[in-house]
Design a protein around this nucleic acid. Structure first.
Length: 433
RNA sequence: UCCUCAGUAGCUCAAUGGGUAGAGCAUCCGGCUGUUAACCGGAGGGUUGUAGGUUCGAGUCCUACCUGAGGAGCCA
């Protein structure tokens, strides 16, 4: 018996007229009398496998009949180009082995509700849309890392268990740490500031946790952030960095995951417009614009979902809003030298109403001013002594930002809710599977 | 935490003004030689989220609770 080459479906075009073996799961099947059309997926793609009763024989044809949705199988056959087949290629079956017979697979090829699907997220991942979204996520993470690595940044992994709040304002998950309290990190930023003083240009990419009772399409309890931090960098430097990063990420997805975007029905034109430079407005100007549009907002208010959506609607690409009032931003933001009411801060709002995907700015580098800000924010000084040290031993101006991975993926994919942009979402009232 | 909406078959939904609970998909049986969420015929499948109330009679009306979804605030 001759050996047959194993192939992945994504590479099937290179095997035309050859006999190959594919290993995967039955996505769906259709029959037409003496024919079976098996839609097989192997994680890299899907292909139609055709079984002709006359040529495969009664016994193998009966095995096709026996196959249920999501049964695992090994199929051997000849690859050919076929216009009538989805994807343009199909495999003419010559041998079929059922690895495991699935029964009563809960996700039928028809519609399901969100709650039902989320309860079965471990199975939902197998569907083509989820496959597409998560392949974009994988591409976004790689593009982020490639971009920063190519610019000489060092990856510094931030701790998850921390002794205190990074930004005392938001709620933290608490856990026991051998008799004392520890908290799950809500940002790696403070540690990145320390690392920037050691390595110059650094970033972290990892999960963060917010124990906020948020319940919107833009919120997760556990989400991932990319946080670059650069020594000797100003607000302008880091604005430009964010702009080039986002443009690079979008371009990478367009180049490498076009098929996924098409599966999702994403408008490619909207993404192709994402080119630098992105518009930059000041917080003050943004408030004036919003007022002129009739929104009820005054100087000093932070932007809500309505304000963000209204602002981003005016542009066909992401827009930077800078110089927010200090009351809207965290204690470590450096005040503007020419207007102490405002901070050297920057948010990036994604278009099409997807809201804030970047938040950052220039950090306070004066020991005295930072001590005062820690005090004013009502934070426990002891927990921040190490952070204050960074201003005692060779303090320099430095800046950075956090990019929300799921919001970025949701925007690029054009999906409604961030919960689909992460493999296993943790949300208010949902911890599992 | 607040506001709005919804819980009926495994899933997605329907059921006039209160009068015997219905369809598609899935499952099982039968048919079809190029299907595209295939199609056609047949079968099984229900304590209508829970508890109470009104009524001759409640999926439908009332009260409370539970669960979920959408949104707000906060933020990425």
């Amino acid at each position: 018996m001759r050996t047959i080459m194993k192939a992945y479906i994504s590479e099937i075009a290179g095997f035309v007229s050859r006999d190959v073996e594919i290993r995967g799961w039955l996505y769906n099947k259709r029959s037409s009398g003496k024919l079976y059309f098996l839609l097989v997926r192997d994680g890299t793609g899907t292909i139609q496998v055709i079984a002709d009763k006359a040529s495969v024989g009664d016994e193998m044809f009966a095995r096709c009949e026996e196959l249920t949705q999501e049964s695992s199988l090994i199929a051997k056959g000849t690859v050919r180009e076929e216009r009538r087949a989805p994807g343009g290629y199909e495999m003419v079956l010559s041998e079929l082995q059922i690895v495991h017979l699935s029964s009563d697979y809960p996700l039928t090829p028809k519609e399901h509700g969100v709650s039902f699907l989320l309860d079965r997220r471990h199975l939902w991942l197998r569907s083509s849309r989820q496959h597409a979204v998560l392949s974009v996520r994988s591409c976004v993470e790689k593009a982020c890392r490639d971009f920063l690595d190519s610019r000489g940044f060092m990856l510094i992994d931030a701790p998850i268990l921390t002794p205190a709040a990074c930004e005392g304002t938001t709620t933290l998950f608490q856990t026991d740490y051998f008799g004392s309290l520890a908290y799950l990190s809500q940002s790696g930023q403070l540690y990145m500031e320390a690392a920037a003083m050691a390595f110059g240009k650094v970033y972290c990419l990892g999960p963060t946790f917010r124990a906020e009772r948020s319940k919107t399409r833009r919120h997760l309890i556990e989400f991932w952030m990319l946080e670059p931090e650069v020594a000797f960098a100003t607000l302008d430097d880091v604005t430009t960095l964010g702009e080039e990063l986002v443009a690079f990420v979008v371009r990478s997805v367009l180049e490498q995951r076009r098929d996924a975007l098409e599966t999702l029905g994403r408008s490619l034109e909207a993404l192709e417009q994402i080119e630098i430079p992105f518009p930059r407005v000041t917080y003050g100007d943004a408030v004036d614009v919003l007022k002129s549009k009739g929104l009820d907002i005054k100087w000093g208010d932070d932007f809500g979902a309505v304000e963000e959506a209204e602002l981003s609607k005016s542009y066909d690409r992401p827009v930077f809003v800078r110089y927010f009032p200090s009351e809207c931003k965290a204690f470590y933001m450096k005040s503007s030298p020419d207007d102490p009411r405002t901070t050297l801060s920057v948010d990036l709002l994604a278009p099409e109403g997807y809201g804030e995907i970047i938040g950052g700015g220039q950090r306070e580098d004066s020991l005295e001013v930072l001590e005062e800000k820690v005090k004013k924010a009502g934070l426990p000084r002891e927990a921040f002594e190490w952070y204050l040290d960074l201003r005692r031993y060779g303090s320099v101006e430095h800046s950075g930002f956090g990019l929300g991975l799921e919001r970025t993926v949701a925007w690029i994919c054009g999906i409604e809710h961030v919960r689909e942009a992460i493999p296993f979402p943790r949300m208010l009232h949902r911890l599992g599977p």
